[in-house]
Amino acid sequence: MMNEKIYQAIFDELSKYLTAEWDKLIVYLEYGNASYSFAFYIQAGDKYIKCYDIPGVSDKELAKSFSVIDKIVSKERSQEKKALWTNMTMTVTKTGQMHTDFDYTDLSEGTYQFKKNWKKKYLC
């Protein structure tokens, strides 16, 4: 598993997008055979804002941040001795509590149902 420095680097890269009223940051990283998909949500009260819907933040800025995160995470992920995880969810609260879940589900057949269940679990 990854160490605290990796989690801190992810948070540091994404913290520039946090709004003043944020309560929780939920980060989703997904790796396939030859690609990756990242997203994050900011919880403010009972409202969730997807990264692509943050006012004043361009897709280009997000792509740059996701590239930075990929360089950090993929290097660490490739050194795994056990089976490689396919997705990781990291939550960080405004009070500094952090939790990370790793999942090994084979997503090569599609992710629709998986992501639907993920949203129920993390964005409710």
Results as ranks from 00 to 15, higher is better:
Tyr36Gln: 06
Phe102Arg: 08
Asn3Arg: 13
Asn87Gly: 05
Asp59Phe: 08
Ala39Arg: 12
Phe114Leu: 07
Leu29Gln: 08
Tyr36Ala: 05
Lys82Tyr: 10
Lys119Glu: 06
Tyr104Gly: 01
Asn117Phe: 11
Phe66Glu: 00
Gly56Val: 03
Glu13Trp: 07
Leu107Lys: 00
Asn33Ile: 13
Tyr41Ala: 02
Leu123Asp: 01
Gln113His: 08
Ile42Val: 06
Val92Met: 09
Asp53Leu: 14
Gly96Gln: 04
Tyr52Arg: 12
Lys75Ile: 07
Tyr48Glu: 02
Ala44Phe: 11
Asp23Gln: 12
Glu21Leu: 13
Cys124Thr: 14
Ser35His: 15
Ile69His: 00
Glu30Gly: 10
Trp118Pro: 01
Lys47Pro: 07
Asp46Asn: 15
Tyr52Met: 13
Ile6Thr: 12
Lys47Tyr: 13
Glu76Leu: 04
Tyr36Pro: 05
Leu123Val: 01
Ile26Ala: 03
Tyr48Val: 03
Leu123Gly: 00
Ile26Leu: 03
Ser78Phe: 09
Asn87Met: 07
Lys75Thr: 10
Tyr41Met: 05
Phe102Gln: 11
Pro55Val: 13
Phe40Tyr: 03
Glu30Lys: 14
Met1Tyr: 09
Phe66Lys: 00
Tyr41Gln: 06
Ile49Tyr: 02
Asp103Gln: 06
Ser15Glu: 15
Ser65Asn: 02
Asp23Glu: 13
Lys47Ala: 08
Thr93Ala: 01
Glu30Asp: 08
Val27Arg: 00
Gly96Tyr: 04
Ser37Ile: 06
Thr19Trp: 11
Asp53Ile: 11
Pro55Cys: 05
Ala39Leu: 10
Lys121Gly: 02
Glu4Phe: 09
Ala34Phe: 15
Leu84Ile: 10
Lys47His: 15
Glu4Tyr: 11
Leu84Cys: 06
Lys116Tyr: 10
Val92Lys: 08
Ser67Cys: 10
Tyr36Gly: 05
Tyr41Cys: 02
Thr95Val: 12
Asn3Thr: 14
Gly45Tyr: 05
Glu13Lys: 11
Leu18Asp: 01
Lys81Leu: 12
Ser65Trp: 04
Leu25Met: 00
Lys94Val: 04
Gly45Val: 06
Met2Thr: 09
Met98Phe: 08
Ala63Gln: 15
Tyr104Trp: 00
Trp118Thr: 02
Ala83Glu: 10
Ser58Trp: 04
Leu84Met: 08
Lys71Trp: 09
Ser35Val: 13
Thr86Phe: 04
Ser74Ala: 07
Asn87Val: 07
Ser67Gly: 09
Gly32Thr: 14
Phe114Asp: 06
Lys64Thr: 15
Thr111Phe: 07
